[in-house]
Nucleic acid binder design. Structure first.
Lengths: 341, 341
DNA sequence: TTGAAAGCGCTAACAA
DNA sequence: TTGTTAGCGCTTTCAA
């Protein structure tokens, strides 16, 4: 039997209205009444009924986060870290976080639409943006608050936080060439994902800056998992002229690549250079430690969430499109300069 | 401007009640009216206001999941996989999933209490149970629905799904001794976590069954992260008489242990045996692949969620305490039989 | 400084 | 088969 405003009102002999106002510290309530109401409320263990508040206020104080998962064996550390950043910030600012999962595809938009129309959330966090992103298109059209981790190619501007991974990859490509590599492979992911697009682009440009043309046959398309990276790396290394360096467009695939190389009897960082992107915790502790590009995923989660809540509250947001500078993390997996094999 | 029942009612010239009933397919509404109401509702793009429904029904159709995180750099693959299992099942059964994060400690219970009292969720999913678990104690006391992944030592019975990791570890210990190991170390985690407790217990028993006493000085206490496993393994391997086998109580720490061993110039699976627990996706693809005990984390997520929703709905649950049988996954990290080093 | 009344959008008991 | 009425718990005019 939950305690309601009415219960308190009866107890203190005041109206529900007064109790409500006292609890909200309105200044047209006498100090004595306030004091009394508060004490009794505390004694009775009153907590406001959120649903009633929400119905009345017509907002939910909830933000939505729909994980674009594939398959059940889903365990990208990227997501948990990002989720923690978003979740903690949401809680700090008094918002609930509604999480669900939906594979990209037909029904995805239906998921969003349903949450919007039934007043389930006040805004969305979007991750893994795509070059042509229907989620963003839809939310922009209906003018529903959202902030994305990542950019898109949709013409309309939208708020986002992103890392300049094109630059990150360019630096990485430079670095590999500077170490003496010529036969270089790249493990990409489906090109419709914006971040892969940027990373491949940056990598290509980075090589070009050093006079090397990225051979299309040296580009594999992975699925961002370790297993995927492994499979592609195996194929690359089985070729008559295998690469001396493999850059994967995320850490997980780079880890798979390390396994593949080791299975080929190669000493990673010596016989072959391998790099990733993200700098997940694992990257530091694998063997050899992985050269990669750092992304402050937790902080990006915080920023995205904070920006979203500001938009929901129609507060001023000084920067709606934040592009972070990447930083290279050079570890042993790419070794020192190589002498031609 | 959202469409409400009232709007539809006006349009079709019926009362709000009738519209509501038509939409819910009550059988005291004429087929014609039903047909009409439904068509108009669809045309107008009606979606019921969830908050109103929830206020009226006095339930939230939402389940809560509070991640017991430590620190920002939180990326245990365990959680994302479990989350996916819970999330998908919840969605399938028409429930929202409210996720938040809170480090174990003082304020944790406050978190739960607040969500309970303000009617935010209908039930909780609990993970990482502790020997003496205040969350479970609290929820049991107030008789609030929850299902735990893991058991506790609290005297009161509660519903859970768990894997018999004591048995799993016993089998693993047997296996290691059968391979010829004598100097065996164990990397545990804080003993107040129920699962570590079971795993250490099982390991100890498993050795004993083969006539080996687990030396207390050979037990390290880690923090379940890769980095933690690494640090402890380094210390173990630096000793004058290092172990020939190290069992970690989860995969992440085992991965750290592999790194440590490799840094000591040991060939894992040959010079030293290393085992984990969980069988996270990474375990299969590290180098060498990790011997471990499988836990069907995604499926456990599904089961826990399903059981919870049944309890919330007061449906019959045939088994309230499910203990799954573990299965050993033998891979290369523990090698074949060793000859004494 | 306080209270009465209305209403957020929906469901349900009861009456017609 | 349909409508009237009441109410979920809260906030917010407006009047006293």
């Amino acid at each position: 039997m939950p305690v309601t405003l009415k219960d308190i009102a009866e107890k203190v002999g005041r109206s529900v209205t007064t109790v409500s106002r006292a609890l909200h510290d309105y200044d047209d309530v006498s100090p004595e009444t306030k004091e009394l109401v508060r004490r009794v409320a505390a004694e009775m263990g009153f907590t406001p009924n959120i649903m009633a508040q929400r119905l009345q206020k017509r907002r939910t104080d909830t933000i939505g986060f729909i994980l674009p998962t594939f398959g059940p064996r889903f365990s990208d550390p990227f997501f948990s870290e990002f989720l923690a950043g978003v979740g903690n910030t949401a809680a700090k600012l008094g918002y609930d976080l509604l999480v669900s999962t939906c594979p990209p595809g037909e029904q995805e938009l239906e998921f969003y639409r349903e949450k919007v129309q039934s007043y389930r959330v006040d805004g969305f966090v979007i991750v893994r943006t795509r070059r042509d992103d229907t989620r963003i298109k839809y939310l922009s059209e209906i003018n529903f608050p959202f902030v994305a981790f990542g950019r898109t190619e949709n013409p309309a501007q939208h708020p986002y936080v992103d890392e300049d991974s094109e630059l990150g990859m360019r630096l990485l490509a430079n670095h590999l060439v500077d170490l003496g590599h010529q036969k270089i492979a790249f493990i990409a992911a489906p090109d419709h994902l914006m971040f892969t697009h940027y990373r491949l682009k940056g990598f290509r440009e980075g090589l070009l800056e050093r006079g090397i043309l990225l051979d299309d046959s040296m580009i594999g398309i992975g699925d961002l998992t370790q297993r995927g990276g492994y499979a592609i790396a195996m194929e690359l290394l089985d070729r008559p002229e295998p690469p001396t360096a493999i850059a994967a467009c995320n850490d997980l695939m780079a880890l798979g690549t390390i396994s593949a190389a080791q299975e080929h009897g190669l000493v990673v960082g010596q016989d072959i250079a391998i790099t990733g992107f993200d700098n997940i915790p694992l990257a530091e502790h694998c063997h050899p430690p992985l050269t990669t590009v750092h992304q402050p995923i937790y902080q990006i989660g915080e920023m995205v969430c904070e920006m979203l809540i500001k938009r929901i509250r129609r507060e001023f947001v000084d920067e709606e499109q934040i592009l972070l500078n990447p930083s290279l993390v050079i570890r042993q997996s790419c070794g020192g300069a190589i002498t031609r094999r």
